[in-house]
Design a protein around this nucleic acid. Structure first.
Lengths: 248, 248
DNA sequence: AGCGGGGACAATACACCGTATCGCCAAAAT
DNA sequence: ATTTTGGCGATACGGTGTATTGTCCCCGCT
């Protein structure tokens, strides 16, 4: 059952272009924008699990069912939230001229958006994102790759874009997950090591993980996540560059 | 409130080494293994959303609360499911000798595991995975990277491993998501294009996405996901190789 | 041998979720 | 002025994860 605005004709009428409910004379106190904003605020403050239609509605002084005039499903709300964050990502100035710089910029903006809205990492890549802002993001990626010198086949461009996107999704996810794990067991990274340390040392003592053991023994403290993300990204970009302009 | 096996002393006693309940003379009909297996079967058949403690317990002819003797939380069950899949991934023969081949092998095995258990993609990277099989996976990664010639700093090895892991997570996620989207709207890829096509064409007609427009116009059909995954992976591996052994 | 206690299991209970349905009331149309 | 309509709130339902309570059986002790 779709929202009541679904005109019912054959065409799918995806959610992003569904019209606002006809603006009432006394301006309707609710709008999809306000709903999405409230949901985002709630998710930022209390996590994605705390986002329930009931709580969002309550934050807007409305009954839960009120929202179904603007959304047909909770999933739709999540999709709109994601697209809103893509909007944040695309908000800043124009793209760089160098394709590499442009892709790097998009990646870092995505990462910082995920740090602002940790729930974004949970949703990243879990559904096809076709909202207008997500499309703008895609467009920016392709535009950047089009500026690459040797990238004639746009088949290759698609591959390249997909590869860096995949890296960004995975890296952001991992980083947020680690961040949460640290926070969960006492705010401090060393404290986290103490927490799961005994278990890990016991596991390592079995001798079944020699390489891991060696890796942890020589524990140079892992560098901050930002540079880890950046260096991994450069690695991926290097790989792309090596096929864009065959090795000099 | 932990499961009843938590010994109560200071040490955390993570879930993977918590002992089975004391084997009763008449062997207990339940075990964590059987629970996890039932949950996996359910998730494979009906999706992750269908995995509820009630349904899992029902599949084992038990009341819902029975499971809390073996698990302290649903999240724990999910963690165990993930580790079980890591077990599948690590099951086949020994690792290749070449570091690149070894990493490639791990990546492809992860992908095929996710294709067998689509819910695995939803859980990938969403939590720190420290189960014995996940550790074995990590160990294999580090072992492979250790075999790389120029990888003296294990700091670099950590970065490299993290980078390819991030790519794999993101790529697998995207692929499963796309697969589901296709399946949701009529099994066929061209059919999917028809489904969201009108919306997309209308969006593109706004002229706000010129690069996207160009990319879609010249629609050489995208290659099958397997080669897309593979080529992206090679791309990442190239990037790593270029820093392992500086350009020849 | 009889009995008491403890522990595994089941049933019940609770708060909350997403969503369908229904009824009311106010505003618009006749 | 009356009727209609449609947006909104309240209520309801089936489901969830989990806490609590009760029951019953089996083991060990007297």
């Amino acid at each position: 059952m779709r929202a009541r605005h679904d005109s019912g004709d054959g065409e799918p009428m995806l959610i992003w272009e569904r019209p606002e409910p006809p603006s009432r004379p006394a301006p309707s106190p609710l709008s999809r924008e306000r709903i999405v904003r409230a949901a985002i605020d709630l998710a930022d403050a209390e996590g994605l699990d705390a986002v329930s239609l009931r709580k969002v509605a309550a934050a807007l002084n409305a009954g839960p069912m009120r929202l179904y005039g603007y959304l047909s499903t909770k999933q739709e709300l999540l999709d709109l939230m994601v697209d809103e964050v893509y909007g944040e990502i695309m908000a800043p100035g124009p793209a760089a001229e160098d394709w590499r710089a442009a892709l790097r910029d998009l990646a870092h903006r995505t990462r910082s958006a995920a740090l602002r809205h940790e729930w974004f990492a949970d949703l990243l890549g879990s559904r096809p994102n076709l909202g207008p802002n997500a499309l703008a993001f895609l467009d920016a990626s392709f535009a950047a790759l089009h500026r690459a010198p040797g990238l004639t086949s746009l088949d290759a461009a698609l591959h390249a874009g997909g590869t860096v996107t995949a890296y960004v999704i995975g890296a952001v996810r991992r980083e947020i997950t680690e961040l949460r794990a640290e926070r969960a067991s006492g705010m401090d990274k060393t404290q986290w090591q103490r927490a799961s340390g005994p278990y890990l040392t016991r596991m390592l003592a079995t001798g079944r993980y020699p390489a891991l053991e060696r890796a942890i023994q020589a524990d140079d403290f892992p560098p901050d996540p930002a540079t880890a993300f950046a260096s991994g990204l450069e690695c991926v970009l290097d790989g792309i560059a090596s096929r864009v302009s065959p090795e000099s």
